[in-house]
Simulated assay, not measured.
Amino acid sequence: MGVTDEPIFSGETVAITVSNAPDFSTVARVSMSGDVPVPYLGIVHFAGLNSASASALIEKMLMDSNLVVHPHVLVTVDGASTGITVLGEVKSPGIYAPTGKHMLSDILAMAGGLATGAGRIIEISSDSAPDQKTLIPWDPTLHNTAVFDRVLQAGSRVVVKPCGVAYIGGNVLRPGAYPVCASQVTTASQLVALASGALITANRGHTMLIHTLPDGSRVVQQIDMGKILNAKAADPVIREDDIIYVPLSGAKYALVNMFGYVAQIGNTTLNVYAGR
């Protein structure tokens, strides 16, 4: 317990000591609405006050109620009684008992900052309403976080979501799953580039983009990667769990096989790739 110049927050424990009238002294936790029950005075709103202003408020209420003639009140705060839990993609997950202002960015810094696998969404909930979750967009590069920074109350639970991935397969050099958090927006051409480009046998004009919707359903869209790479068509944005499939061109495959056979001289074989 200690005297604080910072505002009192919901979830913190306060001790009200009336030195010349101990029957009015109490220790209580600040409710989620910012209130504290005080003996003989009822419910008193403490949230936003500091130790000095809360002490002055109780003194005035005791005098106005003619309960104590000259009360001497001291309000102290134990912010460590209810910490803030930080989980997920941070370097040091745990329960932290911050002093002073409880800003989200400060709590993340106390947890060692974001891990390399951090995504762009932070989930915030509280002890009193664990099922009510607030999703906060967060830029791991710290370019656009100020507008989303916010005060956290004691008892909050912060979960840094992992970076999502998108998938690319078919006729690309390196099919697989790739993270979509490296930049603010990931496009189809960027995902193809991450896969080291399309093979010469690819039918880029009939590339399939499969969007995964929040309910788990999927929408299939045909895109022309050739036009996109030549800036002749819009480059669609890729979201988490999307899939790009670059199909095989039968004609190109036949030509590659034919030229590969013709170019085979002795022990030398010509291997033809595109996008390298």
Rank of each mutant, 00 (worst) to 15 (best):
T4A: 02
T13N: 08
T13A: 09
A15N: 10
D23I: 05
A28E: 13
A28M: 08
R29F: 01
R29A: 05
V30K: 04
V30I: 11
M32H: 09
G34S: 08
V38S: 00
Y40H: 09
G42T: 06
H45A: 14
H45T: 14
G48M: 12
L49M: 13
S51K: 02
A56E: 14
E59S: 15
K60R: 15
M61Y: 04
L62S: 00
N66W: 13
V68A: 05
H72N: 13
V73E: 07
T76P: 05
T76N: 07
G79H: 09
L87I: 07
G88H: 06
V90K: 02
Y96I: 00
A97N: 04
T99V: 11
G100Q: 10
H102E: 09
M103N: 07
M103L: 14
S105Y: 01
G112Y: 01
G113C: 05
L114H: 01
A115Q: 09
A115S: 15
A118G: 04
A118V: 03
R120W: 10
E123H: 07
A129C: 06
D131A: 14
N144L: 11
G155K: 05
V158G: 02
V159M: 11
V160A: 03
L173T: 12
L173V: 11
R174Q: 13
G176Q: 07
G176D: 06
Y178N: 12
P179M: 00
C181L: 00
V185D: 03
T187R: 10
S189F: 02
Q190T: 12
L191T: 02
A195T: 03
A195R: 07
R204A: 07
R204G: 07
M208I: 15
I210W: 01
T212G: 04
P214K: 01
D215N: 13
K227M: 12
L229W: 07
K232D: 12
I243W: 08
I244H: 06
Y245G: 04
P247S: 12
L248A: 10
Y253L: 09
L255H: 10
N257S: 14
M258D: 12
Y261F: 15
V262P: 01
A263H: 08
Q264L: 07
T268C: 09
T269L: 11
L270Y: 12
